[in-house]
Design a protein around this nucleic acid. Structure first.
Lengths: 165, 165
DNA sequence: ATAGAATCTAGAGCTAACTCTAGGTCAAGT
DNA sequence: ACTTGACCTAGAGTTAGCTCTAGATTCTAT
């Protein structure tokens, strides 16, 4: 079984333009061509393609993905390099996910900040008396709620029937 | 207490160039200037700055962050919009983290694939007999190990003393 | 046989998010 | 007073990752 660039593009939910661009950048040295010069993807090629898609999603630059594919084409002498590459990007991805978790925590505290402001009808309930400056105690209060066992995922949610329109 | 652009840049670990760029894009309408036209950041400004940094990390485009800051400057009439904005980006970030978790799972399976190949000295142990094509049963085998309770975070790790040089 | 759709290459164009340059002002230490 | 370094603006330059155009070829279905 073989697949045209359009069929592969559909399967991967990316454009044929992008696939050709990847090819140009050296990411697809494994694809065959038919007698008319058109790309014919094989079933086995999807093993490479899913690695490419994975590394893309992990935030690895196209050039580095190209380096990895080069290693793959070279053979068993590069097994250690390929392992090291994946190991490195596993660590980077774990670090990124930890950062994103902090970002998510922050977003939830701000949601709670606006939920409570919304319920009071004004943001000024969070201000230091007589200023436009946020009282640091407000953040402390939120942290206290979380420390007391509240789920930060729920704390910022508006009660039912509060949505507008 | 007030801070120069350089001091703020240091605190946030971003360049003064980037801060001026953000200002140009309308992200910093709240910063004051001294008589010579230089930016003077106040303590309260860090409440905005940490929101900007958070949204950046969450992957929100600069223009949209600008829209949010505009809402902030407008006053209490925009509280619902600000809440909705954060709510939307919380959901997007949760979705992204779920995707990244799948990506991480995939990376770990590939690490295991190369660990086992490395231990065998050749990738061909994973091929269908007489081909260069990966046997789909290999992935099934990995999934089985995970289903049987193995930690995917550990499965792909090479035993101690195997690192090169 | 032929019209319309898909593909090809080379190369131009685009967008986001910086990043830097040039030419000038201002502030802090000696 | 003077030098050094931080700061200012406007605008040019850069990079990554596409995205599209043009002009030609090929495939598919009637």
């Amino acid at each position: 079984m073989s697949y045209s660039i359009g069929q592969v593009a559909d399967k991967l939910s990316i454009s044929p333009y992008t696939l050709r661009y990847y090819d140009k950048e050296g990411l697809l040295p494994f694809v065959d061509r038919n007698s008319a010069g058109r790309r014919r993807f094989k079933d086995n090629d999807f093993n490479f393609l899913e690695v490419i898609v994975c590394l893309k999603e992990a935030g690895v630059p196209v050039k580095q993905i190209g380096n990895f594919i080069d290693l793959c084409m070279t053979g068993d002498t590069t097994l250690q390099d390929r392992y090291d590459f994946l190991n490195e990007h596993e660590a980077k991805l774990e670090a990124k996910m930890a950062r994103l978790q902090h970002t998510l925590d922050f977003l939830r505290w701000k949601k709670w900040y606006y939920k409570t402001a919304l319920q009071a009808g004004t943001e000024s309930i969070h201000y230091l008396p007589g200023t436009n400056h946020v009282d640091p105690a407000v953040h402390v209060e939120f942290n206290q709620l979380v420390a007391d066992g509240a789920d930060p995922k729920d704390l910022g949610n508006l009660p039912e029937g509060t949505a507008k329109a």
